[in-house]
Design a protein around this nucleic acid. Structure first.
Lengths: 106, 106
DNA sequence: TATATCCATCGTATTTTTACGATAATTGTA
DNA sequence: TACAATTATCGTAAAAATACGATGGATATA
């Protein structure tokens, strides 16, 4: 019988629970080509409205709206209703948190 | 008629093509709870073998192997065959690239 | 050589994601 | 008040991801 010994833990990593869940949701949100394009567009065009993104991307308005919702729920973006339109910006605080956590892991 | 003007680009962002594709694949790989746990385990237990991960996680060996393949293809990990076993480590160079690109975007 | 160990791959069922058209809700304008 | 503009949501079809048992190939051991 061979009892395979798990190598010693070389360090600890205090990411768990809700923080981990949140982080995974953010990774998942970025792991889609369309959503990544939306993020890129928002980085270079802060404050643009949904229609601008719809005009920029080759996909239906309903689909863009759905992706914006995913990005909002993940915490990457923030929408501000102005009249009939909604303008979007990156959520800097959450993005700082994200970058910080990526640094913690790797 | 209202011609919505797209806000001026406030900056450029030179992520595109294959680099972008690679990056999205890496985000997608991390955006799954099981794969994230595997990465965490490898961070704290470098050099462990597939069986160690199977013993650690509450999922079938075939599923673990499948997730390891995704992480390998994404470039996060490297497998070294030693006898009948395969030991895994993080791919430091690709991880450095990943962290650097995250910094470029945000 | 037979046998056990370790792991990747195959085939498949289930769940989740993605994209779309249609529709409704809200705001501004004639 | 009617109407156009803007966007979110609903229902649904198609594609992708996920998990599993079974199997096969490679290595070590009796």
């Amino acid at each position: 019988m061979v009892t395979s010994t798990i190598p010693e833990a070389c360090c600890t990593l205090d990411i768990a629970g809700e923080n981990q869940k949140k982080l995974i949701t953010m990774f998942k949100a970025l792991g889609n080509p369309t959503r990544f394009e939306i993020i890129k567009f928002l980085v270079t065009h802060p404050g643009c409205i949904t229609g601008d993104i719809v005009g920029f991307l080759p996909i239906a308005q309903a689909t863009v709206s759905q992706h914006l919702k995913v990005l909002r729920n993940a915490g990457f973006i923030e929408g501000t209703v102005t009249g009939a339109a909604t303008s979007y910006c990156l959520h800097e605080e959450n993005i700082d948190w994200f970058r910080s956590k990526v640094g913690d892991i790797f």
